[in-house]
């Protein structure tokens, strides 16, 4: 298995008292799976993804990525974990002062790849997401769909083992939503493990993949070919 949660609890402290975002959650994800996390807003989907990415540390329980305990990874070693996990977010999280091509090149340079290979890989990934014609545009000059495709290209360019997608279609119209889902399926077909957090009923019902349903931080359903039922 590639990801394993064992009795994970995450509590946030707020002014109104402690809030349990994740409550004693356990599940395993096999390599190459396509898993959808569904639930209402505040159900704990994003917190769960943040824990996988090492952005948050659980208060209780263990989280393993490829057998390595994510909780004990030092801050200085987090980049090594994150290079193996691609992530796309609802708000795209693109580097606004860099062009589309530079957003990709920067990540590849950080991996220590040579200039010739970078040129090749960047062109290839921008071609896959059909953004080659937007190479020199800044994120502010792209449409919502293009921004998300660029974010996806950036997440894929380091050839991650797992792709986390946190509400990637949340800001998109139905046409661009289908576009992104089609790309996620393509990524899954080449062997990447995909974890998609969404509350889009139509997407889930058409995917026919594993669905983990969360409610108030707990798993209430985990089905192999699940549907969106809340």
């Amino acid at each position: 298995m590639i990801i394993s949660f064992k009795g994970v609890t995450k509590i946030y402290n707020s002014l109104s008292g402690p809030i349990k975002a994740i409550d004693n959650v356990s599940f395993d994800i096999e390599r190459g799976e396509f898993v959808s996390l569904v639930g209402r807003s505040g159900a704990g989907k994003t917190t769960l993804l943040k824990i996988i990415l090492g952005q948050e540390k659980p208060n209780l329980g263990d989280v393993f990525f490829n057998g390595e305990d994510v909780r004990t990874i030092k801050s200085s070693h987090l980049p090594l974990l994150r290079r193996r996990i691609g992530a796309v977010f609802q708000d795209y999280k693109l580097l606004q002062t860099k062009t589309a091509l530079e957003n990709i090149v920067f990540v590849l340079q950080a991996l220590g790849i040579g200039d010739d290979q970078i040129e090749k890989d960047a062109a290839e990934v921008l071609n896959i997401v059909e953004l080659s014609h937007r190479n020199n545009n800044f994120p502010a000059e792209l449409s919502g769909g293009e921004k998300q495709r660029l974010a996806l290209a950036r997440a894929l360019v380091s050839r991650p083992e797992v792709l986390l997608a946190d509400e990637p279609t949340g800001n998109l119209d139905p046409y661009h939503t289908q576009d992104i889902i089609r790309l996620l399926q393509k990524v899954h077909q080449i062997g990447t493990t995909v974890i998609l957090a969404t509350h889009n009923r139509e997407i889930i019902n058409n995917l026919n993949q594993r669905v983990i349903t969360l409610e108030e931080g707990r798993i209430i359903r985990d089905e192999k070919e699940g549907k969106f039922i809340i």
Binding site: L80, A87, Q96, A110
Partner: peptide, 18 residues
Amino acid sequence: SSKEEIEIMRLVGVSNWF
């Protein structure tokens, strides 16, 4: 003013020195 960009770089696995 570049706070957000720095945080994004961290999230996509860029090392601190880079």
